[in-house]
């Protein structure tokens, strides 16, 4: 009997809960670093893909923020459960991207554990970051955190899954929605992660994943008026400068997270949730 023909996977981008191809019709090859063998052609996402993703993220934001904190926690935990089921696939994809077996296993385990970690914080950060403020007047004055809104995220280039989870999990834990640019050289795990999201009760549009070139897309990631904050987790100085300049258009918050090792335990840290929260203070009259 003849050898079975491989069924190759088409790696697509993930916008509004759907797996779509880039509207531009452009692709770029992703290869195995050692052999140079082609793994797949990935979508080279365009300005318009980003625009569509922002529309989806904006649409999903009120619904996601409006869910109970407990329910968001359940959904994040569900993502971790689904990742666990795909553990071997993730490891294999990292190995194809040139990671050693040991490194790949460690990164995937960290990614899953980190998702569980932030699932736990979903209904707890509010108590930590809320305050009751003493004021000199007959007011009950209190501050509570609210989601910033739609966040664009340039995810780390190396450690593609642990990096992605470490920057995205705190964003969605806080009730935000996001559009993420995945690692350009090793995007496989990110695309597989979108399949995990699809089967984890995460509403469409909460996390949108694009593949493509950083230098092409940072302009749009940072200039879109309907984006409320940018997280930049890479190290190109010129791109960061452009982001910071464009962010001034509508005073986006710019969060820089340029880290060497995303498996480090220091990234299990609730203050990363605070990066994309706004504190709202209420003056409530009393004793009138």
């Amino acid at each position: 009997m003849a050898d079975r023909i491989d069924v190759q996977k088409t790696y697509k981008i993930y916008i509004g809960g759907e797996f779509v191809r880039t509207e531009s019709g452009r692709y770029y090859p992703v290869t195995e670093p050692k052999s140079g063998k082609l793994i797949a052609n990935l979508c080279l996402s365009s300005r318009k893909d980003f625009r569509n993703a922002v529309v989806a993220a904006r649409k999903a934001q009120p619904g996601w923020a409006g869910r109970s904190a407990y329910n968001r926690s359940q959904i994040l935990y569900r993502i971790a459960e689904m990742m666990e089921g795909r553990r071997d696939q993730f490891v294999a994809e990292l190995k194809r991207s040139g990671y050693s077996a040991a490194k790949a296993s460690k990164e995937i385990d960290t990614s899953i554990d980190r998702m569980v970690y932030f699932a736990g914080w979903c209904d707890k950060y509010q108590q930590i970051y809320s305050t009751v403020n003493p004021v000199a007047g007959s007011y009950f004055n209190f501050s509570v955190p609210e989601p910033t809104g739609v966040i664009s995220v340039v995810a780390p280039e190396d450690q593609p899954l642990a990096g992605l989870v470490s920057v995205v999990a705190p964003v969605i834990a806080g009730g935000n929605t996001c559009v993420v640019l995945c690692s350009e050289k090793s995007p496989l795990t990110a695309v597989t992660f979108s399949e995990v999201l699809h089967s984890s009760d995460v509403p469409g549009g909460v996390i949108n994943l694009l593949t493509g070139q950083e230098t092409e897309l940072v302009e749009h990631f940072s200039s879109h008026m309907d984006v409320n904050a940018v997280i930049y987790a890479r190290s190109h100085k010129d791109n960061l400068k452009r982001i910071q300049e464009n962010a001034s258009l509508n005073v986006k918050r710019v969060v820089v997270r340029n880290e060497k090792d995303w498996t480090d335990a220091k990234h299990e840290n609730p203050y990363t949730i605070l990066d994309t929260l706004e504190i709202k203070t209420t003056w409530h009259p009393i004793g009138v």
């Binding site: 625009r51 922002v54 749009h220 200039s223 879109h224 008026m225 309907d226 258009l249 509508n250």
Partner: peptide, 9 residues
């Protein structure tokens, strides 16, 4: 302006 707009404005 060249920038995508937001309903906020």
């Amino acid at each position: 302006t060249g920038n995508y707009q937001s309903a906020d404005y």
